[in-house]
């Protein structure tokens, strides 16, 4: 499963993994803005950005082929719109949709694949994202796999009772969704009781992470500086 792979990637030890999440978020956002404003005359820029992102991959000690391929997950969607653009007589726009889509996706993937989720949320908290929202995201991420496995176990069970999973009738499928809802609700209540038992009093603690050090600031400055200077040097 995709999130399991990303979770594994984010626990690798590398210079890029060691940087503070806030530094990586800032660098990624600057990069994304530079990519999003690329126009059709700047194909050299695109090539340079691809080279820049590609050099970050070995730095992160992640499998390069897998990373470059994973970022292509956006292409099917982009291809639909690119085809429509090409048919409407705008081949330039079609190419740019694909290029910008892929480069942005690669940037976001590098951010998440080098930062464990709790640290990423801490990084967003430093940037003043609402802590309540981040807490909801943390619970969501934590129980994502649990509930997805519950859903697939329910599907297997229904399949073994009915003989074929595909033939699940609408009534049974909605019933399954209802049961899943009720179980999730019950699970949330159990989680809350367990939290209260461990001393939860409604106060949400801050996310913990290590300190923002000089190398982190340097990394953010260099990455953002490179991204911006590519846009400044090339017309």
């Amino acid at each position: 499963m995709r999130h399991a792979r990303i979770e594994r990637w984010s626990r690798v030890a590398s210079p890029l993994h060691r940087r503070h999440a806030t530094a990586k978020i800032i660098a990624a956002l600057v990069m994304l803005v530079c990519i999003a404003t690329l126009t059709r005359q700047s194909l050299w820029c695109c090539a340079l950005y691809l080279a820049l992102l590609a050099t970050a991959v070995p730095l992160s000690k992640l499998p390069p082929a897998r990373i470059l391929l994973s970022a292509a997950a956006v292409l099917p969607f982009a291809l639909c719109f690119a085809l429509v653009s090409a048919i409407s007589g705008e081949p330039d726009r079609a190419v740019m949709l694909l290029v910008r889509g892929y480069l942005s996706s690669l940037t976001a993937l590098l951010l998440i694949a080098t930062t464990p989720m709790p640290e990423l949320l801490a990084g967003f908290e430093v940037l003043r994202a609402p802590r309540f929202l981040l807490q909801v995201m943390q619970f969501l991420y934590r129980y994502l796999v649990v509930l997805m496995e519950e859903a697939s176990a329910m599907q297997d069970a229904a399949g073994s009772r009915a003989g074929s999973i595909r033939a699940l009738q609408l009534r049974q499928a909605t019933g399954a969704a209802g049961v899943l809802f009720a179980r999730s609700y019950g699970r949330a209540q159990a989680i809350h009781r367990a939290m209260v038992a461990r001393g939860f009093d409604g106060h949400i603690p801050e996310f913990r992470t290590h300190r923002f050090l000089v190398p982190d600031a340097l990394f953010a400055a260099v990455a953002a500086g490179l991204a911006i200077s590519v846009r400044l040097v090339l017309p």
């Binding site: 909801v136 995201m137 619970f139 969501l140 999730s184 809350h192």
Partner: peptide, 8 residues
């Protein structure tokens, strides 16, 4: 708080 995350 846990309810909202779990429902997500």
């Amino acid at each position: 708080v846990p309810l909202m995350g779990v429902m997500g």
